[in-house]
Amino acid sequence: MSGPTKTLDNQSPELFGQTPWQTVGPFFHYGLPWKGGADLTGGSDLGARPELTPEGHYVLKTARDPGPLAGKMIEIVGQVFDADDVPVPDAMIEIWQANAAGRYNSPDDPREELALDAGFIGFGRGATSEDGEYRFNTILPGRTPGPGNSQQAPHIAVGVFGRGLLKRLVTRIYFEGEAANDEDPILALAPAARRLTLIASKTGEATYRFDIHLQGEHETVFFDI
């Protein structure tokens, strides 16, 4: 005679370990991307899609003014595409970056000799539109240290979320025309033939385009971090 099988759950010590990733699904807009989340320079409602939430049910944060920021303001625009080059209207993009001096606004960046803009958090979040488009207003980041004694070119860490994405995809935005790209230790790890998928095209004096292809001929390089 065998006894009942013990059902393990979240509290079982023998199962302790990383909580598994799950998709954000299609209905995250009233829960995650707040007004101004995609505007790291402040002032606009960029990032949210309040039209998807009925009147009286917007409980997320509203835009804030970070005050004056050092550095060059830039706009990054792009679209997210699936395997068939169909725009993805229910994706969400997050970014994390250093300020113009190359300092991260984080207690784990020990380089206190570099200037910190108190108002520049360096984290942004924005939902894609019906056309699969996202847009960030931010500051061109400075260079940051890489492995060993190397220096990284200016770049922004990117997370891609959405319906059909069981876990975050991680990539990076580098900037066309930056001489430091040629000596960036991370960019060098990407296969040469696909490296350009990591470099945003310069479309104007302070505007860049960075499309994200989840799959297909132009598939973006995604990283295992």
Binding site: T144, A157, L166, L169, R172, I186, L214, F222, F223
Partner: peptide, 18 residues
Amino acid sequence: TVARSPREPLVRIPQTLT
């Protein structure tokens, strides 16, 4: 997931301050 997941292997990178 079929049309929204990458087919190329992820590129493993060292963790930097980023």
